Simulated assay, not measured.
Amino acid sequence: MFAICGRAPLLLASRAASRTLAPTPALSRNILRLLPRTQPSIRYYARPPRSTRAHKSNKPSPPPTPPSVAAESNITQPATGDRLIDRVWAAGQLSQHDTPPAMSSAQRLLRPTLFTLLVVGGSLIYAYNWTAPAPSERLFPTVPLAFSTVATIMALNVGVFVAWRIPLPFTWRILNRYFVSVPAIPHAASMLGCAFSHQSFSHLGLNMVVLYCFGTNLCEQIGAGPFIGLYLSGGVLSSLASLAYNVVRQRFNVASLGASGAIATLVGIYAVVNPDAELYVIFLPFIMFKAKVLVTLLAMVETLGIVRGWTIVDHVAHLSGLGWGVVSGYALLAEYKRRLERKRKELEEKKWLGWW
């Protein structure tokens, strides 16, 4: 699009802040064709050079070529002088719209909402029923389960980042459709895919540092299954909240991507499970916050950003991720206490039966 609201981590080993960036071809040229008329080679989908267009004649015109075929032809048989990157952008373009399609807010949000509910429901069911695998069932039994879980999520984020940096027609269409949240033309699956996309190397690097710092400790405490389920549910819920906010406010000149919503969920859970844990600012080890104080400050900053209309970061995604994390943290504690009580009763029953 024209402004990318990416999500990237703050200074703290906690979560990511996103930025509103200037239009970049890497993530914007193929979503809406809102480009100056001085760039005809990109304005139209795989538009052939003017010199090669057929002149009007009385002969019947051949059947139109499907856009996908025309796009591939433009890649394999490029016009002289065109850059390869321009041809790839043209081939990956998804829309012929000059302006956002005429749709109501409900129409834009219906499918993303249903997809989000499906992912959240599946994630919570998986988290509740997960049991730790035996070492013999694991691919790397000597590697700690918490580390391998977090490392896998980090590898997925890096893989998507590399795919953005290597523009190929096939992957380019998939990335533009399912790995960036666009209020003007929303796709349901982008609620999850955009949580694995990053705008720049610094955006990716900071997010991954925060994910590693909080993720490994939290995963060790709550288990890999609940960790994965809450990470995914936090990612889609924060993406949906951001999309709904932009759609309702008719902000069709932005797009959102980044893992910070999911990471904010982990930070919220961590603060509830470990409220008195001492957290230090990266590169400023003399500054310390308790986890509960840090989350409170972050929530206040995000709320202020929404009220004041700050556009540097995606405050809605961050705040919704934190909120879901806090709610999930209290739910985890309640479930933990319930299971402890059930185990205590089972031990008492065994003791009583053994006495008889």
Rank of each mutant, 00 (worst) to 15 (best):
I312C: 12
N217D: 14
A3Q: 15
S14G: 11
S202C: 10
Q96N: 13
L294E: 00
P275H: 07
A127C: 02
L139I: 12
T24N: 13
P78F: 09
R29A: 12
T216L: 14
G193V: 04
A163S: 12
V158E: 07
V281I: 12
N129V: 05
M300W: 10
V180D: 01
S68K: 08
T303D: 00
S95A: 07
L118Q: 09
V327D: 03
C219I: 00
R87P: 08
A132D: 10
R177M: 01
L333C: 04
G92E: 05
N30G: 10
P40I: 00
A163K: 02
W130R: 00
F196N: 01
L240P: 01
T152M: 12
V150G: 00
R50W: 13
V162L: 15
S328N: 01
V267L: 15
G223E: 04
F252K: 02
F201R: 13
A255F: 03
P63E: 07
H318V: 13
S320P: 02
I125R: 07
R43F: 01
E348G: 03
S136A: 15
L333G: 02
A46T: 00
T265L: 04
E335D: 12
Q96Y: 08
P141H: 11
T311D: 13
A8Y: 04
M1H: 10
R33L: 14
M300Q: 06
I282F: 14
P186W: 07
T99H: 15
S256P: 03
A317C: 11
F283L: 12
G325M: 02
A224T: 14
G122I: 02
N30L: 06
L117V: 01
Q221V: 07
V326I: 14
R165V: 06
S18N: 11
R338F: 11
L10T: 12
T265R: 03
G321W: 06
S233F: 00
A244C: 06
L353Q: 11
Q107V: 10
A163Q: 11
L232E: 02
I228E: 04
P67L: 10
C219A: 08
G354C: 07
S73E: 15
T216A: 06
A262S: 15
G215L: 00
L34R: 10
F214G: 09
E220M: 11
V293M: 09
T38H: 08
Q107D: 14
G225T: 06
L35V: 11
P23K: 04
V316I: 09
S41T: 15
A79C: 06
V327Y: 08
A3H: 15
R111V: 08
L11T: 06
A244M: 02
V301P: 00
T113E: 02
I263N: 01
S57C: 07
L322F: 04
H315N: 12
M208C: 11
G258L: 00
I125A: 13
A91K: 07
F286A: 14
Q77P: 00
T303L: 15
F161R: 05
T265Q: 05
V182F: 03
P9N: 12
I31P: 01
F252L: 07
Q221W: 13
F289V: 00
C5M: 15
T52D: 14
A224V: 10
